[in-house]
Simulated assay, not measured.
Amino acid sequence: MLTIRKATCDDVFVAWHIRRASVHAACAGHYPVAALSAWVDGTPTDKWASVVERDFYVAADEGLVVGTGMLTVANGQVDAIFVRPSHTGRGIGRKMLQFLEALAGHHGVATMRLDATLNAAAFYRRCGWSGDSVSTYRTSRGLELACVPMTKRVAVEG
């Protein structure tokens, strides 16, 4: 059974691994391999660990972490929706996104936003997100990648 929980310091390396594997598997046909490697290869930094501990959630299937997601409540930004390649197509990304949308509503965030990779934009549209224009996403390492900025209004509790 899939459960979603707040990430802890024990999830830093598995979240890094899932991100790397997911990007290389899902984005390969949409971006140059060298750009993907520059984006996700290497080892997690202390800054990465802090972000995981502060803003990440993980999806676990019978104890195995199989997906990640991140919500920055201050600005409604969704990031890091990654699913272990061996577990894609099982609705894990959709469940994580729904969880983050509910969490945003609980925190009074009415409009959420994200920057979709070119391969993921159709997935987000199927989940009710809007956005068609291609823009540039700058990674924390300074790499520039084409992305699709997207938004979604969510119901606010209360």
Score class of each variant (00 low, 15 high):
51 V>L: 13
134 V>Q: 14
105 G>E: 07
96 M>H: 03
49 A>T: 10
157 E>H: 06
154 V>E: 04
53 E>M: 13
158 G>F: 09
3 T>W: 01
154 V>S: 04
124 Y>E: 02
22 S>Y: 04
85 P>Q: 10
49 A>L: 13
115 D>G: 15
59 A>Q: 04
142 G>Q: 07
80 A>P: 11
41 D>V: 02
34 A>M: 09
142 G>W: 13
49 A>R: 13
148 V>E: 14
5 R>G: 04
36 L>E: 06
148 V>L: 04
38 A>S: 12
123 F>H: 02
106 H>W: 06
108 G>Q: 10
153 R>G: 00
147 C>I: 05
154 V>Y: 03
39 W>K: 00
55 D>A: 11
74 A>H: 09
118 L>C: 08
102 A>C: 00
128 G>P: 03
143 L>W: 01
150 M>C: 06
125 R>I: 03
17 H>E: 15
11 D>N: 06
7 A>K: 11
130 S>A: 12
16 W>R: 15
138 R>T: 15
108 G>T: 03
14 V>S: 01
66 V>F: 02
109 V>N: 09
132 D>H: 12
54 R>A: 09
151 T>G: 02
39 W>D: 01
52 V>M: 09
122 A>V: 05
118 L>F: 08
40 V>G: 07
129 W>K: 03
81 I>S: 10
62 E>W: 15
36 L>N: 02
105 G>K: 01
101 E>F: 02
41 D>H: 04
98 Q>L: 05
82 F>Q: 13
42 G>A: 08
153 R>H: 13
153 R>V: 03
156 V>A: 01
42 G>P: 03
95 K>E: 15
71 L>T: 04
113 R>C: 01
150 M>R: 06
140 S>K: 10
99 F>H: 15
125 R>C: 03
8 T>C: 07
81 I>V: 14
72 T>V: 15
29 G>Q: 08
106 H>P: 00
51 V>N: 10
51 V>E: 13
34 A>R: 02
108 G>Y: 07
70 M>Q: 14
9 C>Q: 15
143 L>R: 01
130 S>N: 10
36 L>F: 08
22 S>E: 08
96 M>T: 06
67 G>Y: 06
154 V>I: 04
110 A>L: 05
62 E>T: 12
22 S>P: 06
20 R>H: 08
29 G>N: 08
124 Y>V: 00
79 D>S: 15
84 R>W: 12
123 F>C: 01
27 C>D: 10
116 A>M: 04
107 H>L: 00
126 R>N: 12
31 Y>E: 11
63 G>S: 09
35 A>S: 09
84 R>M: 14
118 L>G: 03
145 L>H: 11
